[in-house]
Design a protein around this nucleic acid. Structure first.
Lengths: 343, 343
DNA sequence: CCAACAATCGAAAGCGCTTTCGATACGGGA
DNA sequence: TCCCGTATCGAAAGCGCTTTCGATTGTTGG
């Protein structure tokens, strides 16, 4: 491995000057700079990030925490989408992403410990879980953090406008003539789930719609299975809804399956609208109408919020909410005016 | 930040002894060990990975290269699946994953340079591109590498049994009565694409099937659009095939779309079989019959192959091929004996 | 009681780099 | 000619850790 000492020896300058030349210091003559840079080129010198980090306390590394309730890790379509956008936005500045293992010296450690050990400059958290103790501890630490799709007063936050998303969904169904809407909620421990539920409740109320308690049913952790089971419960009700708004696309897809299995069809018998617009949404049958989260913007805003903290050397807890968008496909249908009494 | 010096001062032992206690050296008395470990606990000491790496030359870090032709990065369903499995297998040993940016000091660098700079212990490469110069350079370097779904004599390799996959696909279609099979190939610069094409060619030949040149059509880079365009070409042929084997699920999905757009239907008019078994495959309409790659095993074998090199401190170029499996869904149908003259 | 050995400990060097601060040389103005 | 500002350079300390190797102490067998 060639070090700055080798460069120094070869060029006749001191390591100090070599280092300065490498880091664009002003007190290096044109001549010295050129000589040194030439030698660097010729000898194939590369800096050593660990040595550099040791003295500068800056690792050019960003930790990422990926907690999702489905247990599929990076395969999670929504989260991986956001992280990909985040990555693109930080990589041009020289930051690398570190997926941490929480093992140091053969011992299990917490996220905070792991990231301190690794000396990351900041951490981006994508997590659907509301109350993870380790994540909380991390957000309360001195390490800059930004969290996506969660709420926290201890950390910068970037999230979609879940509330408005629910409004858009309900409005759309309403405009199609639906008056009996059910909601398959994400898990209660999930922040996005809560917001979407609240949005559903207030928007239906403001439209003067009556939503019986049985119409709110919990889909387990945004999973397909959760959606399936939830829909089964709805289908067992004496008075069926005509539309259901699912808090996530996977839930919606599960629900559609349950509907088919029960001998009904979408959108003829039930209109279904989801949330997220994951990749599959356009390929299911029928293509799913949904509320799209803008993962590109989500990732970009998260990057900016984190970099801002890193550069200013102080934590902020700003909160950015990113607009969502209704994507109309084929899973919702106007209700023909049969049973609804004309006003 | 609390260092071993603080621990040393507090306990009265030297930093040497503290370090030894932390690293389970034998020449530390029970008493010293306990005193030190207690102090570590009390003061909340954590080692500094950069300092440690600087002296030991071991970073407990594995670089990952993620090149895929679709430009979707971590969202790539197949690759992210493999990496997720890989991650699980190395994280319990204490390795963290580093997604590199290729920017050092504001200058664009190659993968090799980036990973040398970061001092990674090894690199896992998921890449569909055959002849990327930077990847080649990396594989030829002294850094241990394992590559997934590619061939190389310079690196350890883990890949699916593409050849056998083609056999399974062709056999299955044959068993359904199909005799006129077309193939939508992955891009030619892609290794998996080549293998699958070869498999298709030899298996059809060994079954005595005639495959006109026009039946082999290139799908661009395994993309959905590529599959769509490829299928359109097939549909323009005077003599149509009855079945098409696509080298990837995305290709297959694109092809199915083209078929529908042309007014035909699957599997009534064309049987379609894909490769990969990505998540969407089961949700398209009709659910796609495909050759499943075992991403769990792929990731696991890759992890083992890389760790073996890291531990033995020498590169190997073993090659492991992982069996594939036929997953029968609804996109293929037995051919009714109308036009094929009975023997 | 002494030599030999085991157990335990620590001084010091070194990993590759950055940064402070003082040293030197040079030119120009008074 | 002298003083001072400016440009250029380098010595040295320090970042936090590991590891070699020698020193010291205690133990044991003859």
């Amino acid at each position: 491995m060639v070090t700055i000492y080798d460069i120094a020896k070869k060029t006749g300058y001191s390591v100090t000057t070599v280092s300065k030349a490498l880091n664009n210091y002003a007190d290096v003559s044109q001549k010295a700079r050129k000589t040194i840079l030439d030698a660097v080129e010729e000898m194939g010198y590369l800096p050593n990030s660990h040595a550099r980090t040791l003295t500068t306390k800056k690792s050019w590394t960003i930790g990422v925490i990926f907690i999702e309730s489905l247990g599929i890790g990076m395969k999670h379509p929504f989260f991986s989408s956001v992280i990909e956008s985040f990555r693109k936005n930080v990589e041009i500045l020289g930051y690398d992403l570190l997926f941490a293992s929480r093992m140091i010296n053969n011992q299990k450690k917490s996220y905070l410990e792991q990231f301190k050990y690794r000396g990351v400059d900041g951490v981006v958290i994508v997590s659907s879980l509301f109350n993870d103790k380790q994540v909380k501890e991390l957000m309360e630490s001195t390490i800059p953090t930004v969290v996506i799709d969660l709420h926290s007063s201890e950390s910068a936050v970037v999230k979609s406008d879940n509330f408005d998303g629910s409004y858009k969904a309900v409005d759309y169904l309403y405009s199609l003539g639906h008056r009996n809407m059910a909601h398959i909620a994400g898990h209660a421990t999930t922040f996005a789930g809560q917001e979407r539920l609240n949005g559903f409740l207030t928007s239906t109320k403001s439209l003067g719609l009556d939503v019986p308690d049985e119409y709110i049913v919990n889909g387990d952790y945004f999973s397909r299975e959760g959606g399936y089971e939830a829909m089964k419960k709805l289908l067992a009700l004496p008075h069926l809804p005509t539309a259901v708004y699912a808090a996530g696309d996977e839930l919606a897809i599960g629900a559609m399956q349950a509907i088919k299995d029960a001998g009904y069809s979408v959108p003829e018998d039930f209109s279904i609208i989801g949330f997220d617009d994951i990749d599959i949404a356009q390929f299911v049958n029928p293509p799913l109408t949904t509320i799209r989260q803008n993962t590109d913007v989500l990732g970009k805003e998260a990057a900016e919020l984190l970099l801002q903290q890193i550069n200013s050397r102080q934590k902020v807890n700003d909160s950015i909410v990113v607009p969502v968008e209704l994507v109309i496909r084929d899973s919702c249908k106007a209700l023909v005016q049969t049973e609804s009494s004309p006003s």
